[in-house]
Nucleic acid binder design. Structure first.
Lengths: 254, 254
DNA sequence: ATAATTCAACATAAATTATGTGATTTTGTT
DNA sequence: AACAAAATCACATAATTTATGTTGAATTAT
């Protein structure tokens, strides 16, 4: 196991266990304590954990848990499957919009498979991955940078969107309740809504565990989306409600 | 001499001589022909030269201004000094605009010294450096990504600028002739002009060697700038012309 | 006070990257 | 078509960078 794999594993473990001892890690990976020290130092530097005497923790509640870098590591498999399902909807030559969020970042990274494409996004991770790639036209939306969401938001973003049109918008959401999608942040909602308005068709991406929990701000009615992609079957009530409304949900398989 | 230095030297030589033989390069640097082949392949890949049987040439015409990755290495010392002089004009709390280009990237990297600041830019290098830093508000302008300039340009960029105001805009230029600044690319000119229009005061940054050579597109009259910063005294004629017009040029010292 | 832990400095190992060599293929010229 | 120069390929080696380990001094918790 190489350095990056080890660090990934440390994070995986930490997300489960909330805390871990330094000796335990050195033991488990068969490396010296010094190496673990260095791993933890770098991970702390990246804002992924909090180093403490004798080990490290993930700080619950605070900015740590909600940080996008951690989210990108969570449920990596589900995200990969959903990205594959989303890619099926894309044809070379299209113009697609990608919103903020780690799910969108995973999808964005795989867009070159469908080149040539025009990609419009306010997601900093997607911009970094795509810039300079051949046969990809990248249009960044601009806006005020948000470290929390690793993206660009605000009037600049929305004004830019009001002047653009795309074939397909991929919108991700952390909360679906009843027949509506929610989001905890107003600025993100505004950007997402502007994208839906600027796209011919919109696709909602949502982890199956996020069904049945609302958040502060209403994002959109599920009926506004032309497709809904998730990674596994949601709870019975959610499923029934959605089926009852005549909406189709795509469950991404292996 | 290391690989990058050698490649830089190849480019320097080529800019003078327009063409060079492969054997000659292998000889001059004391490396094998294969190594020169690889250098030329990579430089061609980066769009910096045209490889030909037995050697390489610089494409005649406009495109020869070097790639931004190499440009960042050129005249690093002059850039650092000019950045220092530019920083002197910034007060904490200001809103500043930074345009594209490697000179601007060097300045952008040092902006945290003057935090808190609001920074508005279409320069991808500056966005990368500044995002997520505390006490820095970063507003990216968006636009279509240009690999050649490592920045964002086009209507999206200009529309965003039409809605924003800054205290100070830093504009860099690769060419000054007479009492006017020039640039080889129209899209970059549009963005720079929009910045000048959106800023209370504008500062021109220009390497002293760039005086006396025009480029395809007119960027602005020197009189439009509130300050002009360079790294060393320009040629006598240029200096006389500028002094004659009553314009002040700041020469950045050590 | 002391035992555990962290940190810094250096040494070594592992991996990556750059370069060279010679065989093989391509290209231009006659 | 035949030839020589040049380009390319595949692999070996060298140089450089990065990762890890070890030791001992400094720090910290109890």
């Amino acid at each position: 196991m190489k350095r990056d794999g080890r660090r990934q594993a440390i994070m995986d473990f930490l997300i489960e266990a909330r805390a871990v001892g330094l000796d335990e890690l050195a033991d488990r990976f068969g490396v010296s304590k010094m190496t673990i020290h260095r791993d933890l130092d770098d991970l702390e530097q990246a804002g992924l954990l909090r180093k403490m005497r004798g080990g490290a923790t993930i700080e619950t509640g605070t900015r740590f848990e909600s940080d996008f870098r951690i989210r990108e590591l969570q449920d990596a498999d589900a995200k990969a499957r959903m990205a594959t399902a989303a890619l099926d909807l894309i044809e070379p030559g299209m113009t697609v919009m990608i919103n903020d969020g780690s799910m969108a970042a995973v999808l964005g990274a795989r867009l070159p498979e469908k080149a040539p494409l025009t990609v419009i996004t306010n997601n900093a991770a997607v911009i970094d991955r795509l810039k300079g790639l051949p046969r990809m036209t990248l249009i960044a939306l601009g806006g005020e940078y948000s470290a929390k969401f690793n993206g660009f938001f605000g009037v600049v973003t929305e004004t830019a969107l009001s002047r653009l049109r795309a074939d397909l918008a991929f919108i991700s959401t952390p909360a679906v309740a009843g027949l509506q999608a929610f989001h905890m942040d107003d600025a993100a909602v505004q950007a997402k809504r502007a994208m839906i308005g600027a796209a011919g068709r919109s696709v909602l991406l949502v982890n199956h565990r996020r069904f049945g929990r609302p958040a502060l701000h209403l994002l959109a009615d599920l009926a506004e989306f032309d497709a809904i992609i998730t990674d596994a079957s949601p709870s019975v009530e959610s499923r029934d409600a959605i089926a009852g409304a005549g909406l189709q949900v795509t469950i991404a398989k292996d």
